[in-house]
Design a protein around this nucleic acid. Structure first.
Lengths: 209, 209, 209, 209
DNA sequence: CATGAATGAGATTTCATTCAT
DNA sequence: GATGAATGAAATCTCATTCAT
């Protein structure tokens, strides 16, 4: 019985903690997207979240901690939605297209997402933990992609290939295109180009056409 | 001529001014590479340049101005060396390879270059002038690349293609690969992968193989 | 009786109140000893006591109050043990030695005791209530000592003397030695020096040698 | 010639640096004396010195640095005046009296001096550099005192004794008396008691009386 | 009684920028 | 041209204290 009281208390505590941390992380995402990685203040976050400034430090050790948490949350989100999209598909071809679309579409749906991600890239040389989180993200990207390629190869849908190399190449194509678009929205017709890229990828990989 | 107009406009373009501005810009490059875009101070720059802190503001309006100048200088440098490399070559095939190598090699020769460039990307959403400089840089990249492709097409070396699209695609491949490498040096064998990418590009573009 | 008056005045002197106040005071002693008078937080105390931060303010008005209470408790303790030790002895000579040992031994048994006491000294110029507590402590020291000396004098064991002056002098010797030792543990052989001091004191006071 | 210009510049720089550091250290002494070791702010110092808050950090790394500097300055001062007083005297007896008076008089001339010193004692357990400075100060005290005693012994003025032990004992007497007085100004007649103490010391040490 | 989330004042510290020399 | 002392605004972070539950 004592334990259940304790449990309730703990749960309650965890609950509000989860709510606040999530609230603050989301606020951070919005604020960083709007003001940039280094031009925002703790007060901006608090204001955006509708909380007091002191609370930010109550739930996060410091600015770094908050930012690192945001990056991790973003990465976790990314993987979650990717896995969800892929799990609904059987065909390696469709999976690969879904993999591409996941990234291509995100840029348009969530304009800030890439701005914030790039902001984090600037830290890889100066913050080991952020470097590490980025390294992990890109590795899991390549592995996810390689897994699809391998499956397609084994099922005889895709040609024989060095899956690791091709995965890296596809990630380059996707990321490189997104970056060009993000830097210059008018550089090219995004919908058109991404469509063509996907066609090129498929025709490059598929057997006997 | 352009220079004298510039001189009149700026009204400070005598010799010492050129020396100091260059001195400070180079110092900024080194310091930003070392400490990161936002973690350096005007004093760091002055110290690195062997000058006093006050002098920085004598030659540059403010921190932003100094940074913008650095970006422009970096872009100008990039173009200068690219043009120099290309001007020594006739063959579109060789030019295209030189174009790729220019970027691929830079990352290894000047490790900081890309870190600093990425740092500037974080400003595209927040600083119109820096966005503009980045937009221009990428446009000139694509145009340079497209020109080579067009020349190859006209000379009958390359297949028929939509040069703008292919230029964008090649830039994506190059930038995307570099980013993956910059974020994670151990992700793949850089020398090996960049070699393969160049081969793939050539075999994709060349006629009748 | 005194206790019931106290209870009425404080209006919180039931059992649990006594337990909690004692719990918190002891925790404060340990924390102040460990972290220093000004570098601890209410949270430190609460944690050390295994209670919540809010509770500290339920049982003590504020930080000052808590600290003041600690000082009073420490002084009360000191007197309690001193009286206990003295009450077991008849001989003024032995009493005086016990008086010295009480102080000399405490430093070694309870290393933190003096650090905490000195911490309180820093407040005498800024906090009247703490000054007052310290004043009282030292007065009672001198009085205690003077009483022993007077008793020895009356019993013909000690020479004739100005007991107030000599009491002050003995306290100086004791406190001064302890301070030197507390500041620098390696300044001298503490056991040896304190032994010699006690001998000097006795031979200085005793009649006809 | 270049060197002399450089020298001039350096000198000028050093000059103002010295002035400011001294200005700030003195202000710190006054403020700490008035408000207590932990109750003062950097702004208090700046205000007291008639300078801006930023300047404090221009000349001192941080609060710790400022405080440590103050302690060192106080110690240096103490030694300077003690040596000056002693150098004017020949007689070991007079020297010893001067040694005592140096400490006894200071308390009355510079009331804050001891308050500030005691404040620093609270740090010995928490700040190694401050501990070290205190350790050094007390050691030099004992050595200074021992040197006088040794000289007196060699000259046949003082009895044979263990100079290190007696030095420690005299320091204890002096410090202990001062502390009692500082804590409670009304505890005893300071002028009277210090006079008696000096007499006792001399009669204890001097030969054949 | 007890909790711990929440507040908000205030302290330290950093630095771009100015300006007298 | 050049210096670097000086300013002061602003940012991060800490914590005693309060109060709803």
């Amino acid at each position: 019985m004592v334990r259940s009281i304790e449990a309730k208390r703990e749960n309650k505590s965890n609950e509000i903690t989860q709510i606040r941390r999530s609230q603050l992380t989301k606020a951070t995402y919005r604020v960083v997207g709007r003001k940039g990685y280094y031009n925002f203040t703790i007060r901006d976050i608090a204001k955006e979240a509708g909380l007091s400034a002191g609370l930010v430090h109550y739930y996060f050790k410091d600015k770094q901690d908050l930012l690192l948490n945001l990056l991790r949350e973003m990465n976790a989100n990314l993987k979650y939605y990717l896995n969800k999209a892929l799990s609904e598909l059987d065909n390696p071809r469709d999976k690969l297209l879904a993999f591409c679309d996941q990234a291509f579409d995100l840029v348009q749906k969530e304009k800030d997402y890439f701005y914030v991600l790039i902001d984090f890239w600037t830290q890889i040389n100066h913050n080991p933990r952020i470097r590490n989180a980025n390294v992990k993200l890109f590795r899991s990207y390549r592995e996810e992609c390689a897994a699809i390629l391998r499956e397609g190869m084994e099922k005889g849908v895709f040609k024989h290939m060095d899956v690791d190399y091709v995965a890296t190449l596809l990630i380059s194509l996707i990321q490189g295109t997104i970056i060009q678009y993000v830097i210059d929205n008018e550089a090219f017709d995004y919908a058109e180009y991404t469509k063509r890229i996907k066609e090129n990828i498929i025709s490059m990989l598929e057997k006997g056409d």
